[in-house]
Simulated scan of single mutants.
Amino acid sequence: MRRLFDEELADLDASFTEMGMLVSETIGKAVTSFINHDRQTAQEIIDNDSQINQREVVLEKKTFEMIALYQPVTIDLREIVTVLKAVSELERMGDHARDMAEATIRVKGTKRSASIEKNIAQMGELSKTMVKEILSVYVKDDAQGASEIAKQNQAVTDMAHQVRNDVITQIEDDAKLATSGTDYLMVAGHLKRISDYVTNIAEWIVYKRTGKIVDLNSGSSSFI
């Protein structure tokens, strides 16, 4: 029985990691398509969003089945609960990537700002990297590493505030940027929320390793 449980747990971890990599790639594509005004890639992201949703459903079902069948305790139960919670966070990240893709399609023909888009690209790269890194520390069961990744959330927050300030300043100078400026704020907000969700996963990794509930996100979840 123990061998079967360990095998299923390993499969669960592998499926969770695969879902995380898919989400990370989708975030990267969403930001790149927004910056490059690539409506075709944006539409593909929207069309493929159901793949992430389906993975969440499958993983959630698997965790419930394992709890019912094996009735795990202590560290085994914490590991299953961590996956159950973390897949929900990944699915939300996918939703934000889809929303960024929708913004890409919506802003066609509006005036853009190269400097703001550069900052958004940097936000996107850091957010995508955080997702990849949190998957790595999950596999390593590294609570300290998870805490270190969560600290990067502040850098994303600072970038979001910079985007907000730049949008306000540039709209004051040129009212034609008002439409795209609204989308810049929305995209920055989506990336900020993605980094918040990474922090949430980091908290669950700490819980899995130590059994303690911690708060690694001492800042605000919003920058507006």
Score class of each variant (00 low, 15 high):
residue 93 M to R: 05
residue 67 I to Q: 06
residue 123 M to W: 01
residue 18 E to W: 04
residue 16 F to Q: 05
residue 93 M to W: 04
residue 138 Y to N: 04
residue 45 I to M: 04
residue 126 L to H: 02
residue 70 Y to M: 10
residue 78 R to L: 07
residue 140 K to N: 12
residue 208 K to I: 04
residue 56 E to H: 13
residue 58 V to I: 13
residue 137 V to I: 09
residue 24 S to E: 08
residue 2 R to E: 14
residue 135 L to T: 02
residue 222 S to Q: 14
residue 216 L to D: 06
residue 121 A to P: 02
residue 163 V to A: 05
residue 58 V to E: 14
residue 6 D to R: 08
residue 132 K to H: 14
residue 107 V to M: 08
residue 89 E to K: 10
residue 24 S to W: 02
residue 18 E to K: 15
residue 103 A to K: 01
residue 199 T to H: 01
residue 220 S to K: 12
residue 181 G to T: 04
residue 2 R to Q: 14
residue 63 T to R: 03
residue 34 F to G: 06
residue 62 K to R: 13
residue 22 L to T: 09
residue 171 I to L: 03
residue 155 A to Q: 04
residue 131 V to I: 15
residue 186 M to Y: 15
residue 82 T to C: 12
residue 145 G to D: 03
residue 79 E to T: 14
residue 190 H to M: 11
residue 160 A to N: 03
residue 41 T to G: 01
residue 52 I to E: 00
residue 24 S to L: 02
residue 182 T to I: 13
residue 13 D to G: 12
residue 139 V to G: 01
residue 210 T to Y: 10
residue 23 V to Q: 02
residue 188 A to F: 00
residue 36 N to M: 08
residue 129 T to F: 03
residue 172 E to N: 11
residue 141 D to E: 14
residue 133 E to H: 08
residue 178 A to N: 06
residue 170 Q to N: 09
residue 180 S to K: 01
residue 36 N to S: 09
residue 196 D to P: 00
